[in-house]
Nucleic acid binder design. Structure first.
Lengths: 267, 267
DNA sequence: CGCAAGTTTGATGGTGCTCAACCATAGTGG
DNA sequence: CCACTATGGTTGAGCACCATCAAACTTGCG
C-alpha cells in the first residue's frame, strides 16, 4: 500500500509506524516517528557516520537522544517559513529539502538543496531567513537549538561540529555566489550537475547515473535561470555528448573532465 | 608626515609605531603593530564593544591577547590567497577588505566586503576558499584558529561567538544569492547602497551621506554586473532623485523608502 | 481516454554586456 | 604654473544572451 486515505493518513498511523501530530509551531504537517530503528549512534536513524551525533561521547549522545525528534514529511510540505522563529536545526535522514527566499512579486531563489546527511536551519537568535520545503518524501532529525547551546557548555565538540558544518556551507556559498554572479547559463548547469555528481561520489554512491530529486523549475530557481534555459542547455549538452538523459530525472556523465571544462569556460 | 620613503617605510618603522616584518606565510606585506593603544578589552585595538573579545572573562581575554596580532596593510595588499592553508581569522579594526574568487579566464566575483568590527577568514581544516585584499589602508586583528579551538575547550563562549558571526554571515549570503540570482541591475545597485546605509545606521554612523570605500569595479564584481551598468544605474538613480552623488565616493539617500522600493521591484 | 503536471521546443524581444570614446581628478615633472 | 599622464568614472552604439510568451510533447494517473 502506498497511501489510501490521502491527507488523513498523514495525521495518524501509516506505513506501520506509530505517529502522532507534532505540536511545534509551523510543523502541522509533520509526523513524529517514535519507532527506534537504525544503526546510528542514537538508534533513531540509519545515518551511521553521517549522523550529527556520530563519534560523540556516550553521555552526549544520550542527551541528544532525549531532545531529538524524527519527523516525516511528504513532498511539497513546508518545514518552516521565512520569518518563523528559528528554534531547531535539522539533519536530513532521507529524501531532499530545498530552501528558498521569495520576493514580493513572486520571484523565487532557491539558496540550497539538502540531502541525506546534510544539516540545515542554522539559527541562533532570531528568525529563519528562508523557507524550507520537502522536495521528496522526507525524514529529518530535528534538534532544538537551545539545547544544543546548553549542551555545548559541557561538550564543546557539539558546537565544534556545528562550526564545521557551517564552515562547509560558507565555502559552498562562495562557490554559488561565483556561479550566480559570473557564470554563463552553460557553465551554471554544468557546475550544478558536476556538484551533484561529486557529492554522490563522496558519499560512495555511483558518480555517473545520478538521480535528479528536483524538477527543472527548482534547478532553474537554484542556478538563477529560467526553466526553458535549463531545459535547452541540458538538451544541448546531450546533443554534444557531454551528458546523457536516460530519463528526465537521471543524468549520466560520460566524461567528467569535459563537463568540468564546460563548467568554468575553459572549454 | 604621511610617508616619505614609499615602499621601504612599510618594512621598518613608520608613523611612530614600532613595527617588524611579519613571518607568517602569505603575510610578507604585513606590518606588525606592537604598540598597545586602544580602549578595547585587550588593549590592542579601539573596537570597544565591536571587538571579538568584548565581554569575555578576564582569563579568556588574556589568552586571546597572547596569540593576537595586529597587522597593517596598504590598499591593494593581499592578506591571503585562495588555496593558502587557513590558519587564522581576522577582525577588521579599521579600513575595508574585499574577498573574492577568480575564474581561470580572469572573471572575478567579490563575495564579501568587510569593515570595522567585521570578522572574516573562517577556516577550520583546509584552505582559504577565496582571496582577501585590502580595499583601503587597513588594520586587522589576527587570531590563530588553532588557539581559538583549543581555547573553546575551556571557554565555550569563544566558539559560540564565532558561531554567531558565522550565522550572520550565512544569512547575508542568503540575501546576496537572492540578489545575484533574481534581481535586476537596478534592484542590485539599490540593494547594495541600502545595505551600506543600513550598516552605517546600525553602527551609529549617519545613514545618509555614506562613503563608498570601494570603486565602481569592485561594486560591479560584487553585485554581478559590469562597471558600465553600475555607473549607468547610479546616474539614473541620481536623475530620478533616488540618490545624490556629491562626489563619486559619497552617496546620499534622500528617501530610504523610495530606494527600498527600487530594491525589490515594488516600485 | 482525458486531464494535469512537467518537460521540451520555437519565435521574438529586452536587459545588460561589449567595445569604444570621452571626461574628471589627482599626481608628476619640466 | 602648466602640460602630461594615469587612474577611475561616465556616456554612447550595437549586439548577444537569456527571458518571455506560446505551443507541442511526454508521462502518469484518475
Amino acid at each position: 500500500m502506498t497511501r489510501s486515505s490521502a491527507t488523513a493518513a498523514r495525521l495518524d498511523s501509516a506505513s506501520g509506524l506509530v505517529t502522532t501530530r507534532e505540536r511545534w509551531p509551523g510543523d502541522t504537517l509533520a509526523r513524529v516517528d517514535q519507532a527506534d530503528r537504525g544503526n546510528g549512534p542514537c538508534g533513531h536513524c540509519d545515518l551511521g557516520t553521517l549522523a550529527f551525533c556520530d563519534g560523540f561521547a556516550r553521555r552526549t549522545v544520550t542527551s541528544l537522544m532525549r531532545v531529538q525528534c524524527t519527523l516525516r514529511f511528504e513532498a511539497h510540505d513546508t518545514l518552516f517559513r521565512e520569518g518563523d522563529t528559528g528554534v531547531a536545526v535539522f539533519n536530513v535522514v532521507s529524501g531532499a529539502v530545498k530552501v528558498y527566499k521569495l520576493m514580493p512579486d513572486g520571484r523565487r531563489q532557491i539558496t540550497g538543496f539538502f540531502f541525506r546527511g546534510d544539516m540545515f536551519g542554522f539559527c541562533l537568535d532570531g528568525d529563519y531567513a528562508y523557507t524550507a520545503e520537502a522536495v521528496t518524501p522526507l525524514s529529518v532529525c530535528r534538534l532544538p537549538m537551545q539545547r544544543l547551546h546548553e549542551l555545548s557548555e559541557t561538550a564543546p565538540e557539539v558546537q565544534h561540529r556545528i562550526l564545521l558544518r557551517m564552515t562547509a556551507k560558507l565555502a559552498q556559498f562562495h562557490d554559488h555566489v561565483l556561479l550566480l554572479g559570473r557564470k554563463t547559463a552553460r557553465e551554471r548547469v554544468a557546475t550544478f550537475l558536476l556538484a551533484l555528481s561529486e557529492r554522490a561520489r563522496r558519499r560512495g554512491d555511483p558518480a555517473s547515473p545520478i538521480p535528479l530529486a528536483m524538477g527543472r523549475v527548482d534547478i532553474a530557481d537554484y542556478v538563477g535561470l529560467t526553466v526553458e534555459t535549463v531545459s535547452r542547455t541540458m538538451t544541448a549538452f546531450k546533443r554534444e555528448g557531454l551528458i546523457d538523459l536516460p530519463s528526465p530525472n537521471h543524468v549520466a556523465i560520460p566524461d567528467t573532465q569535459a563537463l568540468r571544462a564546460a563548467s568554468d569556460g575553459s572549454a
